[in-house]
Structure formats: C-alpha cells, structure tokens
C-alpha cells in the first residue's frame, strides 16, 4: 500500500479514486500487528490456538484471554485490538442468544458469522465510526459438523478448513496447507496447532508469549473447552522439540 492515503483515508465513508477504502485497510494493519490466531477444522472437531504476546511481566498468567466462548459448542479466537475483539465476542453472544431463542436450536457457526459480518460491515459505512481493528475466527461443532469461519474488518465472513490471522498468518497458512485436515483427529490437531504457533512466533523480535488453546470435539462432548492440561503440556513439549529440529 502507498504510504499516503492522500486525503481519501480520513473516513471509512470515502472511497479512493481507485475504489479502495483506506480505513478498512488500516484496520487490517491493526490485525496484522497482533499475535497470530489459528483455527483448524478437522475430521471430528475444531481446534483454536492463539499466540498471546505478553504485554507486561507483571500480568497474571492467563490474563486477557483471546479465545472466548460464545455458546456451549462455539469458540471465538481474535487477532487485533484486544478490546475490539471482546466487543465482537459480546456481540456474537447476543446474536447467539437471539438465534437460539428464535429457532430453539443451538446457533450454527455459519448463521453467527453471517450476522457478525453484517455488524462489522456496518462499521465501514459511516464517517462517525471506525472499522473494527480485529479479525475473529469462529469455530463450532454444530448440525453442519465441525466449522470454521473468519470475520474480517471489512465484514466478509468466509468458511475455511484452516484459518490463520495476525502477524504470522503467512507462515501459518503454508503450514496448515501441508496438513491433511480432513483426516486429522482433534487430538492430533491440538499437537499441530501448538507446533504452528511455536513455529510462527518470532523469538528474535517478539516479547514472550503464552499459548492459548481450546477445542471442540467428541472428547469434550461437543463443548468448547480449554485443552486439558496433560494434552496441552504434551503439545507444548512436542512443539518445542519440533522447533529445535526445524532449526
């Protein structure tokens, strides 16, 4: 992108002459500056993982969660401005509740991501508001099976087999493409997710990070839950080993 918006970037309600909306592109920049978040849709479940950069050593471990729960069966990982991510999560919970009460059925990730996309897109239309500086990965196991959707600051909501947003997304995507996602079990996917997050983390440039991982699958009874400690530790150990052999 050119370094100047030349007057067309003052508001999200103005196009540039070549048809771009700079404010939305800047919002994407905010996402690209944050720790990576990935989502894996596999044979029988979904895994979400986040590289949470530690802002201060004084923070309690586990503070400022970036993976949140929307409904029993639905997780939500964000990259970008943390506060914007929380706002999107709260909005998703509201939408989830409304879908649940209208249809008397657990909301599907598709319905929810569509609704969230409409909400996010509305913030690209007016000069009085700023687009969301966060992308969200919605993961769920619902009547359509395991599902992953990504909602971007522009408001697009698309389904994926594997998704990556944030700083390390390019490398993470190439790693995801190497996997046979449709054949992986959720348990194997947890190991892979941890490996990818450790791989994309840039030790030289970055502060310390905390790995955050949740999953939804048969082993959780279809519920969105943090990965249990023993599996988490195993995944983290294997990730570190893989990192050493990689280098």
């Amino acid at each position: 992108m050119t370094s100047i918006g030349t007057g067309y970037d003052l508001s999200a309600s103005t196009y540039s002459p070549d048809g771009r909306i700079f404010q939305v592109e800047y919002a994407n920049k905010a996402v690209e500056n944050s720790g990576t978040a990935i989502g894996l849709r596999v044979k029988d479940g979904v895994v979400l993982a986040v590289e949470k950069l530690i802002q201060s050593k004084l923070l309690i471990p586990g503070a400022n969660r970036r993976i949140q729960t929307i409904d029993r069966h639905m997780g939500f990982a964000t990259a970008g401005l943390v506060a914007d991510g929380r706002q999107l999560a709260n909005r998703s919970r509201e939408e989830g509740r409304s879908l649940r009460s209208q249809f008397h059925h657990p909301p599907t990730a598709k319905m929810l991501a569509d609704r969230l996309g409409l909400f996010v897109q509305a913030y690209t239309l007016y000069g009085s508001v700023r687009p969301f500086g966060a992308s969200a990965i919605v993961g769920s196991v619902d009547k359509n099976g395991p599902q992953i959707f990504v909602v971007e600051p522009s408001g697009v909501a698309l389904g994926y087999h594997g998704a990556a947003v944030g700083k390390g997304r390019q490398l993470a995507k190439t790693e995801l493409e190497k996997l046979k996602l449709a054949e992986l079990s959720t348990r194997e996917a947890v190991i892979e997710a941890a490996r990818i997050i450790y791989l994309v983390h840039d030790d030289a440039k970055e502060k310390d990070f905390e790995l955050e991982m949740t999953w939804i699958g048969n082993e959780t009874g279809g519920q969105h839950e943090p990965v249990p400690k023993d599996l988490f530790d195993e995944a983290e150990r294997k990730a570190k080993e893989a990192l050493e052999s990689f280098e």
Binding site: R65, Q68, T69, I70, D71, R72, R93, R97, R100, S101
Partner: peptide, 11 residues
C-alpha cells in the same frame, strides 16, 4: 440461557 450466560461464556 441463564447457564450459557453465567457459566459457559463467563468462564
């Protein structure tokens, strides 16, 4: 709904 908002999402 109470359980979802108070237990599940509050976490």
């Amino acid at each position: 709904e109470l359980l979802i908002s108070e237990e599940i999402t509050a976490a």
